[in-house]
Computed example of a mutant assay.
Amino acid sequence: MKKKIVKCLLSLTGLATVLISWGAPTQAAVLGDDYPSSWKYGGFGIDPWTMYWRQCTSFAAYRLSNTNGFTLPVGYGNAITWGPIARSNGHRVDMNPAVGSIAWFSDGVNGAGYMGHVAWVAEVNGDQVTIEEYNYNAGQGPEKYHKRSFHKSQVSGYIHFKDLEAGAQTSNPTNSSIKVGDTIRFTGTFRVTSIVGSNITSQDLAGGTPTKHNIVDPGPVLEVDGRGNPTSDQYLNPGETFTIPGNFKVLAIDPPSDGVLVQIGNRKTWVTQSVLEKV
């Protein structure tokens, strides 16, 4: 079976943008290929959010504007950077899909290439999500529309810019349901950012650039491939992905940073609440 590769080209920043007034938000559902025809069939071009035409980032930015009524700021770059930038801008990034949220994939996750991938969540049915996307070549060719469904865990995170579901949160408030002494577990997969001695750091776990407070003992973690399956070597290197199985106790909470202190293996470490789920 031919491997599916996603190529999300670098977006441009610092360029003059064109002001376009899109229609009002519409009801969530699979909308089909509503990407503008002039971009769909044109040559080289740049959209109002400084993304290259027909890339996954351009389609996601278009859907956010046209359907969600949200204007993506300039500077989000390649798809792989969307999650960390969104978190740093105060948007919630977690493993809970919502209609209108953005499914975000790091390198190697569910078919994503080295620049990552983003897609628009059209439907959520229990643990199954349906996404719409551009430039995911499942046999139809590159730079084309596609939709697919899969288990909600097969992403790096869901970015909640301005969800369409009633009552959905769009900011990054502290999860008040998690308290000191609670039992929690980690959701999703995480990518190794760096090696620190015999330990690791992960920007995904830290919710931003890791510091000395975000160092993780890799003993309890499980290296996985892009489909979430354990690998054979279990030797972690920067860029590789892992999960953290098991349950953990909440030792402390820091509301200003949305941080939670837990002990993983032999180390206490601070992680962002968006990667946690109360048991």
Rank of each mutant, 00 (worst) to 15 (best):
M1N: 04
M1H: 08
K3W: 12
L10K: 13
T13G: 07
A16E: 13
A29C: 13
D34A: 10
Y35H: 12
K40W: 04
F44W: 10
D47K: 03
P48A: 04
T50R: 12
Y52S: 04
T57F: 05
F59T: 00
F59W: 06
F59V: 01
R63Q: 08
T67I: 05
N68V: 06
F70A: 02
P73I: 04
V74W: 00
V74R: 08
G75M: 15
G77I: 08
A79S: 07
I80N: 03
G83Q: 09
N89H: 14
N96T: 14
P97H: 07
A98G: 05
I102L: 08
W104P: 01
W104Y: 15
V118M: 07
A119S: 15
D127K: 15
Q140Y: 00
K144F: 05
H151W: 07
F161K: 02
D163W: 04
L164K: 14
A166E: 14
G181S: 03
T183L: 05
T189M: 15
S194Y: 03
G197P: 06
G207I: 02
T211F: 06
K212H: 14
P220Q: 11
V221Y: 03
D225Q: 01
D225W: 03
G228T: 15
N229M: 08
T231F: 09
S232L: 06
D233M: 05
P238W: 13
T243Q: 13
T243I: 09
P245F: 10
N247S: 13
P256Q: 08
G259A: 13
V262R: 10
V262E: 00
G265V: 03
N266Y: 05
T269V: 15
